[in-house]
Simulated scan of single mutants.
Amino acid sequence: MLYQTHTLDLAQPCTFAHHPMFRLAAGGEVSTGPLKCVRTFAAPTAEGHALYHPGQVTSGDVLETSAGPRPWRQYPDQTCEDFLAIVHRPGLAWTALRRHGEGDTLLLLKRSEQLPLTCLWMSNGGRQSSPWNGCHGGVLGIEDAICAGADGFAAALSGATDLSEDHVPLALPPGRHVIPHAILRIPEALTVTDVTLDDALRVQTTEGPHTVPFAPEHFQ
């Protein structure tokens, strides 16, 4: 388990994001806590290699591709380079990654009042430029953030992004910010359905409940 706390003293508004990247040897599946929507962006991350059509927004489990609707929670098995943004509802928010080849589950926790987005960077051989050279495959970034995603820093500060339609905070205001974050690994491949935190972390899955020792004061 990895506990992280970032303390920032800002004189100007600023974006912020965690940037963990996870290897998937044989694909995987994302599950997440209550969300407002999932979005794709107008500009592709790598021209000609995006799987999902740009400019989409959904509260469901599928996004449109050139081959028809596809579950966005399933890591793509074809060459692609995609960047999605999950907009979470307020509260303790979580994202879980079930890794098929590794046989485990990675669980990320945040306060969505501070970090309202979770950006999914699906990099599966579609980034042809140096230093990736098409070899950066089977990698998923799960990036908890306050930002404008692929629209960039200037869009976050100006509000010139479709995320503004969801009334999503895009940058931290000036002042002092204490930002807790946690990443833990469960050594079983599980589909997580709910996560609650009281005196311990209680993880509900389709395979049964799990209780994980956890310091609840980390998110207080």
Rank of each mutant, 00 (worst) to 15 (best):
M1Q: 11
L2Q: 11
Q4I: 11
H6C: 15
T7I: 13
D9R: 15
T15N: 14
P20L: 02
F22L: 15
R23F: 12
R23Q: 15
A25M: 13
G27T: 03
G28V: 00
V30I: 13
S31A: 15
G33E: 00
G33L: 02
C37F: 09
C37T: 14
T40W: 05
T40Y: 05
F41R: 08
A42R: 14
G48D: 08
A50V: 06
Y52V: 06
S59H: 08
D61A: 15
V62S: 11
L63Q: 04
L63A: 02
L63R: 01
R73C: 14
Q74A: 14
Y75H: 13
P76T: 00
C80W: 00
V87Y: 01
A93C: 11
A93F: 00
T95D: 07
H100Y: 14
H100R: 12
G101W: 01
G103K: 07
D104M: 05
D104E: 10
D104K: 07
L115K: 04
L120D: 01
M122N: 13
S123L: 10
G126Y: 00
G126K: 01
R127G: 09
S129V: 12
S129N: 14
G137N: 11
G138S: 04
I142A: 03
C147Y: 00
D151K: 03
F153D: 13
L157D: 07
D162C: 13
D162Y: 10
H167K: 12
V168R: 02
A171I: 04
L172S: 03
H177V: 08
V178R: 12
H181G: 09
E188A: 11
E188Y: 07
V195W: 01
L197H: 02
D198L: 09
D198E: 10
D199V: 12
D199L: 11
R202P: 09
Q204I: 06
T205K: 00
T206C: 05
G208T: 04
H210I: 10
T211M: 08
T211H: 08
P213R: 02
F214R: 05
P216H: 03
P216A: 00
F219M: 07
